[in-house]
Amino acid sequence: MSEETRELSEGHAEEDLMAAIRENIKACMQCGTCTGSCGSAYAMDFTPRQMWRMVQLGMVDEIFNSRTFSLCSSCYYCTLRCPRGLPLTESIHGLKQLAVAKGVAEKKGARFYQTFLDTVRRYGRVREMELMARYFIAMKSPVLPLSFTPLGMKLMMKGKVSPEMPQFFRPGKLDGIFRKVKELEARS
């Protein structure tokens, strides 16, 4: 991950973001419709309903020590069905942003997102093959690439992904935009 992308996520005013999420969830009445609608809930340590209560109570450490928010696949069922009309999926995105900013998201998700955005900054578009290669390097896991090898091989044989030389030394296509976003977020 480049310094540019890491700093971008650190530029957030963390407390403001958490306050904004709490404000979003203030009207939650703990009905549990979100939990009943969540395809990943079975694998969570706290259910979505429990997590929103923890947000209301400001239990920040407990929230970020749990894997609940990181298991959201953004299917928007909870948002659709919430009888209070709360922006639940959006609030999970907020929690993911905070996890990255706090550096507590030393998990696959955060690394993947940051590697992804770094290839976007560099080339403007995602180059899937390079993205996965750099994600594996960032994860420093010798076994992770193996679980993707059969798919990678199939994709290469179909000519859908091609190994391209990374271009680390020329200016990134979207450097200006990323720089400006960072600047504005640091100010707010």
Binding site: L8, H93, K96, V100, A110, V120, G124
Partner: peptide, 14 residues
């Protein structure tokens, strides 16, 4: 250019 996919929203709202 890329729309940000599901990565941008997990890192920065703006």
């Amino acid at each position: 250019t890329c729309c940000g996919a599901s990565a941008a929203e997990a890192v920065s709202e703006l």
